[in-house]
């Protein structure tokens, strides 16, 4: 019988700490599959965030350096400028990238750093217990917006891809979701494309991934995926937001 599915070489053989239904484990796996398929495991350097995915280094078997909360793109800039031939990517959540690290992310994008950002948008601060994120939706109840986010008090959610698309530096910005098998396949294709942009030294690339956080959304896994498709994707439209031919 032919083996058609196995653990990628770049994924360590350990169980993950992520909650059932969490999107991080899917995204980790996609990255590991691509590192294998594109033969990049021995060239890759990842900058994980502060947040649940800080422990990505326990799972993805490549060189990694932690960054202070929000500073991943600044750290990645330093690494990439010194090692231009390595694949350098940051892996960041919405609080990390779109709140505390907005300046670093926008300026790395604007400089057109040849790095890739894997931006996991789950509309909450996951690790700290479900507080409101810059990408939380209007009306969304979190532990710090108990009556629901309002435009009057917190302002509307930030659309990172659209914001970055206004800048001259980014070459490839796409928003995808891991809420369905088709979405997972598109996510893999998007990350692959982003890595290819970097390998060709064609500027800054970012893939925004709408990803479920059932624990903090207080939903089961299926309802979380449905919420992404029916609610979240209305605020954060899927698709290629910016693409400069490389």
């Amino acid at each position: 019988m032919k083996k058609v599915y196995s653990r990628p070489k770049s994924l360590r053989n350990v169980s993950m700490h992520y909650c059932p239904g969490c999107g991080h484990s899917i995204i980790h796996r996609l990255i590991a599959e691509l590192l294998d398929e594109m033969n990049l495991q021995d060239q890759a350097i990842c900058v994980p965030p502060a947040g649940c995915a800080v422990l990505a280094y326990n799972y993805i078997d490549i060189d990694m350096v932690e960054a202070p909360h929000g500073r991943a793109t600044a750290v990645a800039t330093g690494v990439k400028r010194v090692r231009p031939d390595n694949l350098v990517f940051s892996y960041q959540g919405d609080g990390d990238l779109a709140a505390i690290g907005t300046a670093e992310a926008l300026h790395a994008a604007n400089r057109g750093e040849h790095i890739t950002v894997i931006f996991v948008n789950n509309a909450v601060y996951g690790m700290t217990g479900g507080q409101m994120a810059p990408t939380s939706l209007i009306g969304q109840k979190t532990t710090t917006s108990p009556h629901g986010r309002t435009v009057a008090n917190e302002g509307p959610p930030i659309r990172v891809c659209e914001l970055m698309a206004q800048l001259g530096g980014p070459s490839y910005l796409e928003r995808v979701s891991v809420s369905s098998p088709a979405g997972v396949r598109k996510t893999k294709a998007a990350i692959k494309k982003a890595f290819e942009y970097q390998i060709k030294k064609s500027g800054f690339s970012l893939v925004e991934i709408l990803s479920p956080c059932p624990t903090n959304w207080k939903m089961d896994a299926m309802a979380s995926c449905a919420w992404i498709d029916e609610v979240m994707a209305k605020e954060f439209p899927l698709g290629v937001i910016k693409e400069v031919q490389c």
Binding site: I45, V47, V65, A67, P68, R71, A74, V75, A76, T77, G78, V79, K80, R81, V82, R83, A103, E104, L106, H107
Partner: peptide, 17 residues
């Protein structure tokens, strides 16, 4: 850099590289 925070973290990245 865009800030002192960014510049010290670029130093961190360059140093680890």
């Amino acid at each position: 850099a865009e800030s002192e925070l960014a510049s010290i973290n670029m130093v961190l990245g360059a140093s680890v590289a």
